[in-house]
Design a protein around this nucleic acid. Structure first.
Length: 329
DNA sequence: AATCCCCGCAACCGCACACTC
DNA sequence: AGAGTGTGCGGTTGCGGGGAT
């Protein structure tokens, strides 16, 4: 049961392969097949270990290898299979002709994993991340966004109320059965942090800000941020459409048009429009509260910082340009 | 132009397991 | 049964290219 010492042998070359070495390896295998990988280097005239030869062949020189960027379909397949199989790269590779496990692994680690994290998903479980640390980037993005809004006309109470509400829901997953006391310390720490950050004059939305808004299941997203979405809402099954070449676009959303609708459904997530309290500005905007069927809505929160209307949301949203509203109509 | 830094990817490392003798 | 061998696999490293400063 011992481990092969093939790569520990002295005098064998390591590191990048030269074209000459590649040629020797290819010519030998095309003529004789690889046979015993251990014996191959000597027979092929290569000063490499058999393992190095095998890897070079299977990951790079094999004639049926497909090179180049992964297609949308391949990306979607990888995401789907990874959600089922986890890091079983060889198993995933078996469903993608011409792709090696190493290539898929690299693609995952350098692209897909980051993409999921940016969207607030745990790359291992493919579920929304609900811990404060993981959602902090989204909250920071939110702080960033609020700087773009007419935030100076808000009272401190209003700002805190909004942050508080966001944090509560964020730290209580998707059920919105908020237990404020349980999260009080964490929330206050986050609020302090957010306040300090939003005091800086951030003038541009950072990329993660755009990303969070694409995700109705993102816990940080699930609050009123939804109406500030910069792109049509995406569902996890639509992940593959969110490539780097598909930059976020402004997605208008008319809150006014929803004021009279008690509940709307959006990509499988129910949103309740709530309009109450005083409107402190010309912006007749409302909180859009996600609700989970059978679990009630956020208005039943025990928090004293319930949703209320204010001037948080600017007139970013225009019904006549809104594909979501178009879809709903 | 020079340097720094980040990112992608090829290659390596080491463990696990099946197989042979 | 146990030692040795071959191979598969997932994790990690480090080099090189390119963009940023």
């Amino acid at each position: 049961m011992g481990r092969s010492p093939c790569c520990d042998e002295n005098g064998l070359k390591k590191g990048p392969w030269t074209p000459e070495e590649d040629q020797k390896l290819v010519q030998y295998i095309e003529k004789h097949g690889h046979g015993s990988w251990r014996a191959l280097p000597k027979l092929a005239g290569l000063n490499r270990c058999g393992k190095s030869c095998r890897l070079r062949w299977t990951n790079y020189l094999r004639p049926d290898i497909k090179r180049g960027k992964f297609s949308q379909e391949e990306e979607q397949t990888i995401l789907h299979l990874h959600s089922i199989l986890g890091n079983k790269w060889s198993a995933i590779a078996s469903h993608l002709p011409g792709r090696t496990d190493n290539e898929i692994k690299n693609f995952w680690n350098t692209h897909l994993k980051k993409k999921l994290i940016q969207m607030g998903f745990d790359p291992m479980t493919h579920q929304p991340r609900t811990d404060l640390v993981s959602t902090l980037p989204y909250l920071l993005a939110l702080a960033n966004i609020t700087d773009l809004m007419d935030i100076h006309h808000q009272s401190l109470d209003d700002q805190l109320a909004k942050l508080h509400y966001l944090l509560q829901s964020t730290t209580t997953s998707n059920t919105f059965t908020t237990n404020y006391d349980q999260n009080a310390i964490t929330n206050m720490e986050a609020i302090n942090l957010l306040n300090s950050i939003s005091n800086n004059n951030v003038k541009e939305i950072n990329p993660s800000a755009a990303m969070i808004m694409n995700y109705p299941q993102n816990p940080a997203f699930s609050q009123g941020i939804a109406i500030a979405s910069s792109q049509p809402l995406h569902h996890p099954t639509m992940l593959s459409h969110m490539s780097d070449s598909d930059p976020p676009q402004a997605v208008p959303f008319s809150s006014q048009s929803c004021l009279n609708s008690s509940e709307i459904s959006m990509q499988g997530t129910n949103f309740t429009m709530i309009s109450e309290g005083d409107h402190t500005s010309d912006h007749d905007s409302s909180w859009m509260i996600p609700t989970i069927s059978g679990l009630g809505d956020a208005t039943s929160s025990s928090s004293s910082y319930g949703p209320r209307s204010s001037s948080y949301w600017p007139d970013l949203f225009y019904e006549d340009q809104d594909p979501i509203m178009h879809h709903l109509s």
